[in-house]
Simulated assay, not measured.
Amino acid sequence: EFGGIDVVVNNASAIDLSRTRDVSMKRYDLMADINVRGTFLLSKLALDALLASSNPHILTLSPPLNLEPRWAGIHLAYTMAKYGMSLTTLGLAEEFRAEGIAVNSLWPQTLIDTAAIRNLPGGEQIVNGARSAEIVADAAHAILVRPSRSCTGNFFTDEGVLREEGVTDFTGYSLGAAEDQLVPDIFL
């Protein structure tokens, strides 16, 4: 309807950090459905339009595949859902490398002030050690303007991307905490 699709951003995600015996199957199914199935389905349905683009990108907000056992041990259901998104990045990047569709993941280096964080128990206090969402937006833009044929299969962090772009001062993204008081995000 709008003449094509150049970029797909898989940002939808459900979160439940409960331990295995505490997570309900309804919440498990929701995370699997939104995080993994949603990422795969949206990407799949956009492929034909992306192939017609001169610089096609799929960017998924998911972590690097860190197989350190502690991440699965803390919140297995959520870890599987997020890593399913990351596996989608890995697979699609390889499958569509020759066709020139860039497929990458982006993850924040520190916590980001989001509704999901604020809705967690103690979330209003947690966001004091977070950065604003603008850092992720700026990093996403920097990735999405790169040539798709030479930028695929990466698991970027927001801070890492911006450092590659020459940014050295991140204080403008802070919500007030000093850089050494920011809370690192999970999976890193």
Rank of each mutant, 00 (worst) to 15 (best):
C151N: 10
N10T: 12
D158L: 14
T89F: 03
D29V: 08
E68Q: 08
Q125H: 06
T88W: 00
P64Q: 03
A130C: 10
H57R: 14
T171V: 11
I112E: 00
T168H: 03
G91L: 11
F2N: 12
D48Y: 06
N55R: 06
G176S: 12
A139I: 15
A140P: 08
I112C: 05
S18W: 13
D16C: 13
A142G: 06
V167Y: 01
R146N: 03
A177I: 14
I143C: 11
Q181S: 09
M31D: 06
R131S: 12
P56I: 14
T157H: 04
T157V: 14
V7C: 03
E68F: 04
I112W: 01
D48T: 11
L87I: 15
G91P: 00
G3A: 14
N11F: 12
L65R: 04
H141M: 08
A140I: 12
D138M: 09
H57T: 12
A93P: 00
L47K: 12
P108T: 14
R70G: 00
P69T: 09
I117N: 01
E94T: 11
V7N: 07
R131T: 14
R163D: 00
S24Q: 10
N154M: 07
D16R: 12
F155T: 12
I74V: 10
L92C: 02
N128A: 10
R21C: 04
L76V: 10
D138N: 15
L47Q: 01
T20M: 08
G4W: 05
R27K: 09
T168N: 05
W71F: 14
N35E: 01
A178E: 14
Y83S: 06
P69R: 13
E99G: 01
A81R: 03
S43D: 02
V136N: 11
A46N: 03
T20N: 00
P121I: 13
T110K: 11
A102W: 08
F187K: 01
S105V: 15
T20L: 13
S43Q: 02
E94D: 05
E68N: 09
S18E: 08
H75G: 02
V161M: 05
R131M: 12
A142E: 08
Q109G: 03
E68T: 10
N154Y: 08
R118C: 07
M80R: 03
Q181Y: 12
L106V: 15
V8F: 07
L106M: 09
F187A: 03
V136E: 04
L92F: 15
V136Q: 06
A102K: 09
F155G: 05
M80D: 07
L188Q: 05
G153K: 06
A140T: 11
N35K: 02
L175F: 05
W71R: 03
L61T: 14
T79H: 05
P63N: 06
R27I: 01
Q109T: 15
V136T: 15
A46D: 00
D33W: 13
I74K: 07
S18L: 02
I126A: 12
I117V: 15
G100I: 15
E99H: 03
N55V: 12
V145H: 06
A14I: 11
L182A: 02
